[in-house]
Amino acid sequence: MEGLKFSPKSKKVLMLLVILVLTPFAPELLLFMDVAGVEVAFTCLLIMIKPMKLWVECQVAKIKEFSRVIKLAIRQHPVCDARVFAGHYFAFSLTLLLTSSLLVSSSIWLPILVMGKYIA
Results as ranks from 00 to 15, higher is better:
66 F>A: 15
66 F>D: 10
66 F>W: 05
67 S>V: 07
67 S>D: 14
68 R>M: 06
68 R>Q: 13
69 V>M: 06
69 V>T: 09
69 V>D: 13
72 L>A: 14
72 L>T: 09
73 A>V: 02
73 A>N: 12
74 I>R: 09
75 R>W: 07
76 Q>P: 02
77 H>E: 08
77 H>C: 08
78 P>W: 08
78 P>M: 06
78 P>A: 10
78 P>K: 08
78 P>C: 12
78 P>V: 07
79 V>K: 00
81 D>C: 04
81 D>N: 15
81 D>Y: 00
83 R>W: 00
85 F>A: 10
85 F>C: 11
86 A>P: 01
87 G>T: 02
88 H>I: 10
88 H>D: 03
89 Y>H: 04
89 Y>E: 11
90 F>H: 04
90 F>Q: 11
92 F>L: 09
92 F>Y: 15
94 L>E: 13
94 L>V: 13
95 T>K: 08
97 L>A: 14
98 L>I: 12
98 L>D: 07
99 T>D: 00
99 T>N: 02
99 T>C: 06
100 S>L: 13
100 S>M: 06
102 L>N: 09
102 L>C: 03
104 V>W: 03
104 V>I: 15
105 S>D: 07
105 S>I: 02
107 S>P: 00
108 I>V: 14
108 I>T: 06
109 W>Q: 02
111 P>S: 08
112 I>Y: 03
